[in-house]
Amino acid sequence: MASQASFIVQARPETVHSRRDPAVLKTYSVKKKGRALATGLSIGDAAVAGHLCLIEDAKDIDRFIDGSILVTVATDPDWVSIMKRAAAIITDHGGRTSHAAIVSRELGVPAVVGTGDATYVLHTDQEVTVSCAEGDVGFVYEGVSDITTTTVDLTDLPPVRTNIMLNLASPSAAYR
């Protein structure tokens, strides 16, 4: 009988959910949207508006403006210093397990990854709204949209006598 080897690929404490107040649910709604400029995979569930900062190469990260929305081809560990200072992240490449997706989830920063063409259609100083609040697809809208944040204190909800069960084919839809 052949022996099987086991490997641990990565193990570290998860940070985003451990920092959140478990008794509070925050949701975002985007109204008066501009034209959709780019779409990709939605990472996180927030929405933000602001100015873009397009940086295509890690050697230029010193040009990043704190609090702006980072637009780039893809990220790697060299980009973490500015990812921490970004309001949101948009990448041409990447999926749910890409560097940009993993780090943005850990930082609690909304990201739209795998757009295919963000670095071609978006430009520095452009005002946009990044929405990860609309399900699995993330949107980059032209201009500043109306973003409404709703906070629900879960401790105020009455107890239920029914066992609530979910079939989560789409985990991002759990709270909807």
Rank of each mutant, 00 (worst) to 15 (best):
S98E: 02
I8N: 14
A111R: 01
A74M: 11
V140Q: 00
R63W: 07
T149C: 03
D78T: 06
A169D: 10
S3Y: 14
V160C: 10
I61N: 03
G114C: 01
R63Y: 07
L168C: 07
S172H: 06
L52E: 01
A100S: 04
S104T: 03
D146N: 09
V144Y: 11
R105T: 10
G135T: 04
D153K: 03
A5W: 14
G34D: 03
V144W: 08
P13F: 15
K32R: 15
V112D: 04
M1I: 15
A86W: 01
A74C: 08
V152G: 00
G108R: 01
T162Q: 06
V80Q: 05
G116S: 03
D125L: 06
E14D: 14
G67D: 09
I102C: 07
R12S: 13
T155Q: 15
T151D: 14
T75P: 01
G44N: 00
L54P: 09
L122C: 06
V128S: 00
S29I: 14
P159M: 08
V103H: 00
D153L: 05
V113F: 02
S42Q: 04
A174N: 11
R176C: 12
V30L: 06
Y141D: 02
I43G: 09
A36H: 05
A87P: 05
V128E: 00
T115P: 00
D76Q: 08
V71S: 01
D136S: 11
I8K: 13
Y175L: 13
T148H: 10
A88R: 00
V144L: 13
S145H: 04
S29K: 12
C53H: 06
W79A: 06
C53M: 09
R19W: 10
D62L: 14
A133Q: 00
A46Q: 07
A118K: 01
T155S: 15
T162E: 12
D136E: 12
V30I: 06
S18Q: 15
F139W: 04
V112K: 00
D76S: 12
A111E: 03
R85V: 03
E142D: 10
I102S: 10
G44L: 03
P171R: 02
C132M: 07
D21S: 12
D57K: 11
G143T: 03
A87C: 06
R105M: 08
P158I: 08
T124F: 07
I43E: 11
N167C: 10
T119Y: 01
L70W: 02
D60F: 12
R20E: 15
V112L: 04
A169G: 08
T75L: 04
A47C: 12
I90C: 00
D60E: 11
G114E: 01
F7S: 13
A101F: 03
R161V: 07
R35F: 10
A173V: 09
D78K: 09
P158D: 04
A49S: 13
A118P: 01
I61G: 04
C53R: 02
T72N: 10
S170L: 11
R12D: 15
K59A: 13
L37V: 11
Y175A: 12
G108Q: 01
T119P: 02
T75N: 00
V113K: 00
E127Y: 07
N167M: 12
A11R: 15
S81W: 04
T149D: 02
S6C: 13
